[in-house]
């Protein structure tokens, strides 16, 4: 564990991440996890091939070995999850009426027009009321002109 943390630290210092399937990972850690996973699936499968001929129907040996292989992989998933922490930054947003106004500006939506369209349609108005959003929207009325 100490070693891993050291690696992580180093990676952060060097600021090098690799993007795989839309998420950032550390290259070295990825290689280690893949090797662990492949070895575990192989060992699990071989264990099945060794154990099951003694106790199971010959037809089912391969299927059962697949199961032991998966067991191996799942154990490694747990190990990998403990060893390697996600390389993501999680920011928890808070929406304030200030940021709401900014959002309308960014999206180039006319606030008054939007509120008018919502208020004209009773179904949508009721819906936003239930969600508790209507009042903060109405608070922005006329904000464009200011």
């Amino acid at each position: 564990m100490a070693n891993t943390q050291h690696n992580e630290q180093k990676n952060v210092d060097e600021k090098k991440f690799i993007e795989i399937l839309g998420d950032t990972v550390s290259g070295n850690q990825l290689i280690i996890s893949i090797i662990l996973s492949v070895v575990a699936s192989f060992l699990g499968y071989q264990l099945g091939q060794w154990v099951f001929p003694k106790i199971a129907d010959p037809q089912m040996i391969n299927s059962y070995s697949l199961l032991t292989g998966i067991a191996g992989i799942l154990i490694v998933v747990v190990i990998n999850t403990i060893l390697f922490k996600p390389k993501r930054i999680l920011v928890e947003d808070e929406t304030s009426s200030h940021s709401l106004k900014e959002a309308f500006e960014d999206l180039q939506i006319d606030i008054d027009e939007e509120i008018r369209l919502i208020e004209e349609d009773p179904v949508t108005k009721k819906e936003l009321e239930d969600f508790g959003i209507l009042s903060s929207l109405q608070g922005l009325k006329g904000a464009d002109k200011k």
Partner: peptide, 24 residues
């Protein structure tokens, strides 16, 4: 998921699965 499950573990799991099925 975001805080605790690393992408490394997920990618490794799928490569492991592919290996297992191909070997089988």
């Amino acid at each position: 998921v975001l805080k605790y499950i690393s992408q490394e573990a997920i990618v490794a799991m799928f490569i492991g699965l592919a290996f297992l099925l191909a070997y089988n």
